[in-house]
Simulated scan of single mutants.
Amino acid sequence: MQKSIRNLVLAALFLALGLILPFFTGQIPQIGSMLLPMHIPVLICGLICGWQYGAIVGFILPLLRYVLFGMPPIYPTGIAMSFELATYGLVVGALYAHSRWKCIFALYRSLLVAMVVGRIVWGVAEIILLGLGGQTFTWELFLSGALLTAVPGIILQLVLIPALMVALDRTGLVSFSKKTAVDAA
């Protein structure tokens, strides 16, 4: 019971962070789309609270942000982002929870797989949503949106999230096993 209350409170915190972080980059939309500020709290939520909370926070975040602040545009961006972020939270949380050891190697593996699967889900959602509107979603649009413009955000996530998890390990909020990456492989 106490753990579920803790996870619920932390999930609410990550949802609030996801609502607030885009304000720091939102003045220049190109920077916001490059740094992916809503992705970070969802990934951390999935890692700390579990896949269920990560998926729910990820799905709700873009929709709630649209209702409260009018951004991101709901169609197709906000809806596609809801599926993408839900996938991030679900995949990173499930993979990390089922890792044999909670180490940096498992953390990076979980993050990388979640990023790839989430971007694929985003692409599929864009294809479906734009197809319903009679528009097309090309391979070039996918590469641009999923990879090329997102490189700074991907690098930020791969640096910031493990550093934050190590810091949280020192506080006792999360724990890494004593196994090394070589032992985990």
Rank of each mutant, 00 (worst) to 15 (best):
R65Y: 03
S4E: 13
G54V: 01
E84F: 05
V113R: 04
L15V: 02
A16R: 05
R170K: 15
I154C: 11
I127L: 15
A55I: 02
A150I: 01
N7F: 10
L129V: 07
I48G: 04
P22L: 00
I79W: 00
Q157E: 15
T136Q: 11
V91E: 04
L112Q: 07
V42G: 03
T180V: 10
G145Q: 05
L43F: 13
I20K: 12
M71H: 13
G18I: 03
I48Y: 00
V124Q: 06
F59C: 07
Y96H: 01
A185M: 14
T149F: 09
A146I: 04
P41T: 00
T87S: 15
I154S: 01
L156E: 13
A146G: 11
G145P: 07
A94W: 14
Y108N: 12
A86N: 05
I120L: 10
W101M: 14
E140F: 06
F23A: 14
T171F: 02
V113Q: 03
G54S: 01
G54L: 04
V159H: 12
V57Y: 03
R65K: 10
G58N: 02
L36A: 09
R109A: 15
P72K: 10
P73W: 00
F137V: 02
L68C: 07
Q52D: 11
P41Q: 02
M81R: 03
H98K: 15
T25G: 06
L158K: 04
A86P: 02
M1P: 12
Q52R: 15
S110G: 11
A185N: 14
A97G: 06
L95M: 09
G172R: 14
G172H: 10
E140V: 11
Y75L: 07
L129G: 10
